[in-house]
Design a binder for these strands. Structure first.
Lengths: 149, 149
DNA sequence: TATTGTTATACTCTATAACTATA
DNA sequence: TATAGTTATAGAGTATAACAATA
């Protein structure tokens, strides 16, 4: 039993070392696949989360995106200035507000996503069907890793 | 045939949208798992590549890490100041030099890796053996995606 | 008192443009 | 002329600490 645990642990640590640089390099490239509309990946990502998960408070959005609240404040300022989100009064708590994506936000997300995904889509097309299937099944596992941080 | 291609393409684009936010969020967390030796993930990663792939020029290292040459210059300055790499004269080209990891670099990498991997290792331990196996097989696929950028 | 969010500040990461030295 | 690398500069990304408003 002790041996099994030790082996599993060694294997797991080795997997961590294997996985981290690959994730880092790929994310570097993804950040640079920037359409020229001047919206960055960070901003787009927050907008996409609002679309996917619906209206929520600034704090909840920060948690969902795994950033600290002040970082989200900056992102929301940019989104609001462009009319891509709006803030509605929270029904009971006046310190907070409920942030929702606007029609303009939805429209922008659609057009932006097409451009941004172009590179990654092209790269994915170079893989085999099996490899793509593997990636598909791995996305929720990555999310599981990011949870319970 | 046309239908198959179209379907495959739609599926691939959807996979891109699915995968990107997951990668972004996980990498955010990984960057913050910073040991207090003041070496950042970017620096550690370059050092790890030198260990794995052996001595190479600054340009080649930049390419391997998927960053531009000036970004690598900064990283190498830090590494050299700490004696973690050394620069040997290139045999024929005096504009360039061959960068190699030192003994100190190897030692630091070992101790640092243990600390840095702690969080990820812990998270990985929460997964099932099947999920970990899936992640292991996916690392080379991520590298394949980052290639031919 | 505790919590939500913002402001102030600073550091890391990375890029592009311009330059130097060498090929 | 072309290439390898560096310097100069700037913008994006993110955090911690301190603060204001409200609970």
């Amino acid at each position: 039993m002790a041996t099994v645990t030790k082996q599993a642990s060694a294997t797991t640590a080795e997997l961590a070392s294997l996985l981290r640089p690959s994730l880092l390099r790929l994310t570097r490239i993804l950040r640079n696949q920037r359409a020229d509309t001047s919206l960055t990946l960070t901003v787009i990502s927050a907008l996409a989360t609002l679309k996917k998960s619906g209206p929520m408070s600034a704090g909840d959005l920060a948690a969902a995106e795994r950033v600290q609240p002040p970082s989200m404040t900056k992102v929301l300022t940019q989104l609001e200035e462009r009319g891509l989100v709006r803030r509605d009064a929270h029904p009971t708590d006046r310190r907070s507000s409920i942030i929702a994506i606007t029609e303009a936000g939805l429209a922008l997300l659609d057009s932006e996503r097409q451009r941004r995904d172009a590179w990654l889509t092209r790269q994915l097309a170079r893989l085999t069907a099996d490899e793509r299937a593997l990636l598909r099944s791995v996305a929720p596992i990555l999310d599981k890793l990011a949870e319970g941080e």
